[in-house]
Design a protein around this nucleic acid. Structure first.
Lengths: 337, 337
DNA sequence: CTGAAAGCGCTTACAG
DNA sequence: CTGAAAGCGCTTACAG
């Protein structure tokens, strides 16, 4: 396969490279005749533009980049897709950048910014740790989606999320209302401003409001994979057979836990109740379907985009809470007598 | 945030841009002293390289690009990860390019090739249709993974896959051995050289070998999503209550079908058996766990990489079949009396 | 070991 | 409406 450049195309079409460039970019200031001549050659050559060269010149930071943490995360991917939909309405094109679970979204931001490909950012599922300081340094408008940045004191960052603490409290209330008193909590790292810390506190709020003791040591830290959740549950129930409910911080975790219980000969929800979080599609399909906290993907997407536009227009940062919903699935039931 | 170029770094460090470039690329021909001077400035400035400029110059097609069809496809993603692992051993760096379900891997190839970023390709989960001709035009070494290209007559393309036809036949044999006689088949488009066509034929092989009639019209075409599989099964069972088993062409499909059956008040596997395909992690965790055909991800990855290296060394194309395994899950059982 | 210069393939004012 | 020229930020022979 030959590699052709716009120079080759220009030569063959008998026009200047700048003219080819104009045709390729759909500029209006080209005669129909010339456009056709150029396009014919493009077709004939099977010409493909070199995006590196294009991006190198294209210096206008008109893009908002959506940075998604975790390629596998169905929930975040869902929101990202919805954002693209929203963007159809606005003129601002979006650029989606997926980063690995362990990667740093702030590095990704810097890279995209340095390449002048993005002048603003939406961070989907960002971790809140010391690295979050980088947001301040960047200075351009940033929106945190599904993460609460209200307490970070950013002057250039908005956020859209549910009230994770209240939502988890509500879920725990729901579980306790079914008569459970020995409830385990499995989730992510409880540090700092991370949503997992908030969810943990929400669970604690409920437990203490109901006068139920919970030893902070009992908290089970797990990665958000089927395997880790499975292993965690296996260890937990081998040691504590008297637990009757498990609150988890993701639907995938819930599925892993449910399988572990099954393998231990315990039925869900008859013997043990298990709750999830997020409300991904799979949660409705698996058996038992997961009782979970639904975060509204389309609303989070829509409002994130709106907030970003707002900031780009000079508006001040805002921190928006959207409504969550308790989804009643088949995985939580009354405690057995 | 300021954007610095290597020119800024050079100026500040009091060296030439070429020297900065050398340091950045870890070339050996730089004095330790100079290297330190440059790195200090890089640190101070928080300098980030512009990859567009870098890639524009970096003209050597040393990369093999792995093109993965479908960001959501857990099975293909798994294989891609394993390929990266394999690549640690070899010196050739890999570049992973994810494309959407509807996108054209051959366009992606052309783009990457035109940008001189890749001189060879591994196509994961490619569709085999008229567009596959593009492979011939590209001319550089290509490996199809999970797809059989043996009958395409490519001079520059190898392939690694299981024997999809035999595997599906084996699965259908297994189902029939449980006494089922009214089996539905749900899967992808049966056209041409696509793996779904082969799977379909495999199912037919088994049915006819067992003297069971199957009207080609009965085949149920479905997209590979939970929702589509669910809807398909709903329609199917509303019309044909007497079916006792469903062979599907993916684990996700199986999960969708199982949920539909449940919602219709039918139990899996007591009332209806359902089989999957691929053997993704989730298949082992969901309830019932899926009886499925396991394709070995690590072996497919390893052999694909090996075949590519082989072709790069001038070897002729080869078409390798790896072993599949029937995984006995909880979703297929003896037909009820 | 280091620097000056050419060039990768585009785009975009600037003339005409 | 079209073209010649400069330049985006790098890398890489080529000298020294």
């Amino acid at each position: 396969m030959e590699i052709y450049t716009i120079r080759d195309v220009a030569r063959r079409a008998g026009v200047a490279v700048s003219t080819v460039s104009r045709v390729l970019n759909g500029r209006p200031d080209v005669s129909e005749e010339t456009r056709k001549k150029v396009m014919d050659v493009v077709e004939e050559y099977g010409f493909v533009q070199n995006r590196n060269a294009r991006n190198l010149k294209n210096t206008k930071p008109i893009f908002a980049a959506i940075i998604v943490r975790g390629r596998r995360n169905a929930f975040l991917n869902d929101i990202a897709e919805q954002m693209i939909e929203c963007a159809q309405g606005f003129k601002t094109p979006f650029l989606i950048k997926y980063i690995d679970e362990e990667d740093d979204e702030f590095d990704a931001m810097r890279q995209l910014y340095a390449e002048k490909r993005a002048g603003s950012f939406i961070l989907l599922g960002a971790r809140m740790d010391e690295r979050s300081e980088a947001v301040r340094a960047v200075g351009v408008p940033v929106v945190f989606a599904t993460v609460d940045a209200a307490n970070m004191g950013y002057e250039n960052a908005s956020s859209v999320c549910i009230d994770d603490r209240a939502a988890t409290r509500a879920m725990m209330d729901h579980i306790l209302a079914q008569g459970h008193t020995r409830v385990a909590v499995i989730g992510g790292c409880r540090d700092g401003e991370d949503i997992f810390a908030k969810r943990y506190l929400g669970a604690m709020d409920s437990l203490s409001a109901h006068g139920i003791d919970y030893d902070a040591e009992e908290y089970i830290l797990s990665r958000f994979t089927l395997e880790d959740a499975y292993d965690s549950a296996m260890r937990l129930f081998s040691a504590h057979r008297n637990i009757t409910a498990v609150l988890t911080m993701s639907d995938m975790m819930a599925i892993g836990v449910i399988r572990a219980l099954r393998d231990l000969g315990l039925r869900v929800p008859q013997d043990v109740s298990v709750s999830g979080f997020d409300g991904i599609e799979l949660a409705r399909y698996c058996i038992p379907s997961i009782t979970t906290v639904r975060q509204p993907p389309e609303e989070i997407a829509r409002r994130s985009v709106a907030l970003l536009c707002d900031m780009l227009d000079g508006g001040a940062p805002q921190h928006v809470k959207v409504d969550y919903a308790l989804v009643d699935g088949e995985s939580v039931a009354r405690v057995r007598a």
